[in-house]
Write a protein that binds this DNA or RNA. Structure first.
Lengths: 120, 120
DNA sequence: TGAACACATGAAGAGGTCTTCAGATGTTCC
DNA sequence: GGAACATCTGAAGACCTCTTCATGTGTTCA
C-alpha cells in the first residue's frame, strides 16, 4: 500500500469561480461539529445509522439528514444490511482529507520558528 | 527544508465535542468560495487588500470583512506597509491544509481501483 | 397480514452567514 | 492642517443551515 499524497500535492492554481464553488461545497460538509464527528466516527469503520447516532450523541433523525447531505456530496455511502443501513466513508480521499485537515488545524500556529532570519 | 506532513498524519481519534468545534470553525473558513479564492490567491504570495479584491473580483469591503475573520482564526496575517496592508498566509500548515484540501476534493470519486482484490 | 424495528423525509422555526452601504480610521504628501 | 488614498468597521437585509417534530417507507418475523 502507500499511495495517496506521495511526496507532494500539486499546489492549486488560483481557483476559478467554479472550482472554488465545488471545493467550498465539499469543505462545508466538514465544517460542522456534527458532520465532523460523524465522519471521524466512520473513519474508524463502517457503522449503521443507529449506532452512529449514539456515538455522536445526536438524534437519529438529525444524523439521517446529515448523512443525506454527505451522500449527495459523495463523501459517504450507505448499503442496506437487513433492517439497518450501514454507512462508510466513500474512498481514501475522504479519509485523508479528514486526517490531514484535523492534523493541520490542530497544529495551526504551533509552528516552530525554523526560519534562519526573522521576518524581513 | 521539507517538513510538514512527513510520512504520515496521525489518524484523528473520535473527536470530542470541543475538538470538533475547533476544527469545524477553522474548516468553515475554507468553506466559502470567496474565502477560498482569497486564500489560494495568498497561497501564491503576499498581497495588499486592494490587489486582493481585484484578483478575486470582490468589493474591497467584502474582502476586508473576510480577512478579519481569517485573521481571527489565525489563518492569515496583515502588516502595514505604507498606506497598504499586506496580507499573507499565517504559516505552512495553512498552505498545506489548502493544497491538500483542494487536491483531495478534486480527486474525490476518481480513485483508480488499485486494490489487489475487490472490496472485502 | 400485522406488529415492531431501522431509517428516511418533509415542514417549520431559531440562528447564523455573507454582502452591501455608509461612514470611520490611519497614512502619505504638499 | 488638508486632500487623496487604502483599509476597516458597524448596521441591515437576503439567504442558507441545522435541528426538531411528525410521519412515511422499507424490512423482518411470527
Amino acid at each position: 500500500m502507500g499511495h495517496g499524497v506521495e511526496g507532494r500535492v500539486t499546489p492549486p492554481a488560483q481557483l476559478d469561480a467554479e472550482s472554488a464553488a465545488t471545493v467550498a461545497a465539499t469543505l462545508q460538509a466538514l465544517a460542522t461539529p456534527s458532520r465532523l464527528r460523524i465522519l471521524t466516527r466512520l473513519r474508524h469503520g463502517a457503522c449503521p445509522v443507529g449506532e452512529l447516532a449514539e456515538a455522536v450523541e445526536m438524534e437519529q433523525s438529525a444524523v439521517s439528514h446529515q448523512l443525506r447531505l454527505l451522500r449527495a456530496l459523495g463523501l459517504v455511502t450507505g448499503t442496506r444490511q437487513g433492517r439497518s443501513v450501514v454507512y462508510s466513508l466513500y474512498d481514501n480521499h475522504v479519509a485523508m482529507l479528514l486526517d490531514e485537515a484535523v492534523y493541520h488545524i490542530e497544529h495551526l500556529g504551533l509552528d516552530v520558528i525554523d526560519e534562519v532570519a526573522g521576518p524581513a
